[in-house]
Amino acid sequence: MMVTLMDIAVLIKQSLDVQELRVDQDTGKIYIEEAPTKAGDIDLNAAEEAVRIKEKVGGKATAIMLSTWGASGKRLKEAKEALKRVLAMGLDDAVLIMGEEGQKADTYVVAKTLAEVIRDNYQLVLAAEGSDDNFSGLLPARIAAELDWPFIAYATALELEGEYVKVTRSLEDYEETVRVKLPAVIAVTQEINKPRVPKLMDIVKAGKKPLDQRDFTPPSEPKIAIRELKVPKVERKNVIIEGDVEEAAEKLLQALKEEGAL
C-alpha cells in the first residue's frame, strides 16, 4: 500500500466555557468577561483523530487558532493553554493568530484568513462539527469553499487510503461512507474517538513545542453584525423535594397535579 506523509491542520477554537458561564435572569446580564475559555470539546476529537492518522502514516499536525478575545492578559494565557492541551495530545506545533479584543470578525473573515494559512501547506483540515459556544459549524465549510476543497461533515470514522480518505458520516436518515481525494476539509463528531488524556511528561513536552503567534489583520469587513445578546426568559422554580423515597414521590405527584400537568 502506498503511504503518504500527511500534513494536517486541526482547527481549534478558543471557546467560552458555556458550562461555567453565568447569566442573570433578572438583570439580563451575561457574565462573558468572567467566564473562562478553553479548546472546544469536539476540537479535542479532531486533534485526537489527527494524532491517530500521524501514528499510522507519519507526517505533521498543526493546531490553528484564531482568537479575537484580546492579545493580552488572561485571554492570551487561556488561548495558549488551549493550544498546549492539544499539543500535549500529540500535535506537533501551533499557529495562534491573535486579534484585538472585540475585533469584528465573522466566519467569512476568519475563513478567509485561515484559508491563507492552510493553502499550500496542508493536505487535510480537521475540525469539530460545531463549537461549544456557538455551534454553527460554519467555519470549516467556509474554509473548504475558500480553498475549493471538498467538505465532508459529521464524520464518525476516517481512514486514509493513499491520496484518498474514506469517511463514514452520520446524517439523520443515513450513514454514508464516502471517498474523496485529498486535499479535503472534514468536520468530525464527538463519536469519532475518545480523546486521550495527556500524561504529565506530554504536558511538560508540549510547553517546548513551537507556537507561532501572529497578529490578525482582517482581510475584509464581516458580513454579520451581532447587535445584541439577550438572556432567554426561562423561569424555573428550582424546588428541591425533600423527604424519603415514598414522601418525595408523593410530593412530586402532588406538585405536578397542582400544576395541572397530570
Partner: peptide, 20 residues
C-alpha cells in the same frame, strides 16, 4: 445535518452572510 453541511459552503461561494 444536510442543511447545516450546505449552508456554509453555499454562503461562501456566493459571497453571502451565513448563520444557523
Amino acid at each position: 445535518r444536510r442543511g447545516r453541511e450546505l449552508v456554509g459552503v453555499i454562503a461562501h461561494k456566493i459571497g453571502g452572510s451565513s448563520t444557523t
